[in-house]
């Protein structure tokens, strides 16, 4: 079984990487992009029995830094 975990910066936390990507997109000639925020996707292959609370615990203990990041768990 596969679970996807999306780690994103919290609102209000500046994202220098997203800003640089935004500039690069504009540099390629694309217009109409208002903002870019970069995050991280982590895919986990696991036993079907792994609980949601274990996955959440992985996120809060390691995969996300709760000072600056949020996470979302998407189970297939």
């Amino acid at each position: 079984m596969k679970t996807r975990i999306f780690v994103t910066l919290k609102n209000g936390v500046l994202d220098p990487q997203g800003k640089a990507i935004h500039h690069a997109i504009e540099g390629l000639g694309f217009s109409g992009v208002h903002d870019v925020r970069a995050g991280r996707l982590i895919e986990i292959e696991h036993e079907p029995g792994l609980s949601k609370s274990d996955l959440e615990s992985m996120c809060t203990k390691l995969l996300a830094n709760m000072v600056i990041e949020n996470f979302e768990i998407e189970q297939a």
Binding site: V13, L14, P16, Q17, A20, N65, V67, I68
Partner: peptide, 17 residues
Amino acid sequence: LTEAGLLPGALMRNAGI
């Protein structure tokens, strides 16, 4: 030390990249 929770806050990518 911040990641271990011994100090508050976090150290992010430099603002100038």
